[in-house]
Amino acid sequence: MKTDDLIASLAADAPAQRPLRRLFAAAAILGALVACLLFLVTLGPRPDIHQAVHTVRFDFKFVVTIVLAVTAFFVMRDMARPEVTQSRLRPLLWVAPVLLVLAVAAELMAVPQDQWMPRLIGHNMRFCTTMIPLFALAPLALLLWVLRRAAPQSPTRAGAIAGLIAGGIGAAFYAAHCFDDSPLFVAAWYTLAIGMVTGLGALLGSRLLRW
């Protein structure tokens, strides 16, 4: 095949393109909707949610998970570009962990020492580490599907960041059901659950996102 012929034929496959950014946003929103639906069908919010929203510990669970998802989303969008070796937005990924560390410190000061372990262990760690990854599956799949059109320099890292977003979304929904509100519980088990999704994203990314 002559190169000129190839070029002519590529020009025949060139309809107007939607910006990739819009597709990423659509994938995140659709993924969150599917996770929401799954959440409502399987668990639903805890019965005392109306009182719970007035407590700072309950609300903080949403702050930290949503901040994680949103910051990771911006980093992923940047990493989707082939010329980006190291995203300048990467420091954003520290925001959620720093918030969590501060919350843990505040909790340790606010609560007597004999309460630390019970709050850390909580009531439902196994459930938490099962349901968060489950809610994260649809967002992860959709984000990876859009990332396949992208050109990340590191497929593994791009997949991992997609996992952070999906894990953050899954955790935000699970948080509305979960009775364990202590930052100690969140730091241990939410982190573990989101870490599992991140690992899955990295694994899938290394296979699916090569180009």
């Binding site: 990739l20 010329e83 320099q153 180009w211």
Partner: peptide, 27 residues
């Protein structure tokens, strides 16, 4: 050329074009 074609959506129109092109070619 095929990679440029299939990945052309990843160029952000508010960003310089040549670094993008260069990155695809090098990759």
């Amino acid at each position: 050329l095929l990679a440029i074609h299939l990945k052309r959506q990843t160029w952000m129109q508010d960003q310089p074009f040549l670094p993008w092109l260069n990155a695809i070619a090098r990759h």
